[in-house]
Amino acid sequence: MPFLLHAPDGFFSTPVAVALWIVTAVVVGYSANRASRELDERAIPLMGVMAAFIFAGQMFNFAVPGGTSGHLLGGVLAAILLGPWAGTIVMASVIGVQALVFQDGGLLVLGANIFNMGIIGTLGGYAVYRSLVPLLGGLSSGRYPAAAVAAWLSVFVAAVLTAFELAISDTTSLAVALGAMAGWHALIGIGEAVITVAALTFIANSRPDLLRFGQPSAATA
């Protein structure tokens, strides 16, 4: 149930919500700038369809004991497939539409939700991926373990951040929130890691040419 990360309005205090809106606006604005510079005019249809892809990809679920189901969040996958800046734009758009159209997450706290899932999960997850790939011996051997660690962290850290934000907002106690959110999302993160790696494997086997955007070599070029 990663939608526990989509906080509705009211659960973060006004200062927390507004402060994170400002941070989100700055980072997303910068990403928009970078993405428009790095990709040509095909970026708009590509990112638009990719945002719809992430939204639809989150529908694929699998039964988990206990009556719930696991599914993809997609931040790290988006960053690896599209590059960090375009990935951030795509995730911010997905989270924005989920709030605006489906009330999955609030409007005043949208900045916080984009920060937790779209910025930390995507940009942060990508930074972990980028720094782990060379450590693990390059793309050929390091791509999947690095993606797995980054995907797990993206969910886990988003949950820990949400717990802290809830605690600062005085909506819950830090100890309980950390225990519940972090413990639960440590498990959800494993699902995220498996799905992310399996998706990358599938793409590497069928259309390896599509794995060029977010790769360390391409991003530095």
Partner: peptide, 13 residues
């Protein structure tokens, strides 16, 4: 979970 991952990969392509 891996089946879901392959479906995600396929949908991406």
């Amino acid at each position: 979970a891996r089946v879901v991952g392959s479906m995600v990969g396929s949908l991406f392509i």
